[in-house]
């Protein structure tokens, strides 16, 4: 049962790849490349994107065929998907990343970094609260000082604080 669902997952991925490549060929390429159709396709800016998409479609089809026809014995049992806990942590990390970008723009470097670091450490659940705040603060300040004075990169002041 488990192996079969792996196969289904693989086929699903391939089908979506095929759909994607068709999307590029029939929608993105004609409408989002600002050029008229050239007489010689080889000289057109559309050549490479379309060629690449056809290749993706072709390779995905080959992969589907191999997946269907493959002998069960040859499959390397690979653990490709995560446990729920892992997925949750990764989702949390992504959410924190988005939060970071937004707060970086709105509040500036130091508050955004500090809070994001604290949150990330929380997702790991390995540091006590005091150590967490301490390490986050030290890291934030050292990064700030290094970039500001050594690398001469100036962080913009947050929009809300201007």
């Amino acid at each position: 049962m488990k192996l079969k669902s792996n196969k289904t997952k693989e086929i699903a991925i391939c089908l979506s790849l095929i759909l994607f490549s068709l999307f590029v060929i029939f929608y993105l390429s004609p409408f989002h490349i600002e050029a008229e159709k050239a007489e010689i396709l080889a000289l057109s800016p559309r050549l490479f994107p379309e060629l690449a998409s056809w290749l993706i479609a072709f390779l995905s089809t080959v992969l589907i065929l191999i997946t269907i026809l493959e002998d069960e014995r040859n499959r390397h049992p690979k653990k490709t998907f995560n446990t729920f806990a892992e997925e949750m942590t990764v989702l949390a990390a992504s959410a924190i990343s988005i939060f970071f970008i937004v707060s970086f723009i709105l509040l500036g470097f130091i508050p955004a970094t500090f809070v994001s670091l604290v949150l990330l450490n929380l997702t790991q659940g390995k540091l006590g609260i005091i150590k967490n705040l301490g390490i986050s603060m030290i890291t934030t300040l050292s990064v700030y000082l290094f970039f500001h004075y050594v690398m001469e990169v100036f962080f913009p002041v947050g929009e809300l604080l201007k």
Partner: peptide, 14 residues
């Protein structure tokens, strides 16, 4: 590692 990688994360972004 659990402390290292958030720090790596920050450096990546900055």
């Amino acid at each position: 590692r659990s402390v290292m990688f958030p720090i790596v994360w920050i450096f990546c972004v900055i």
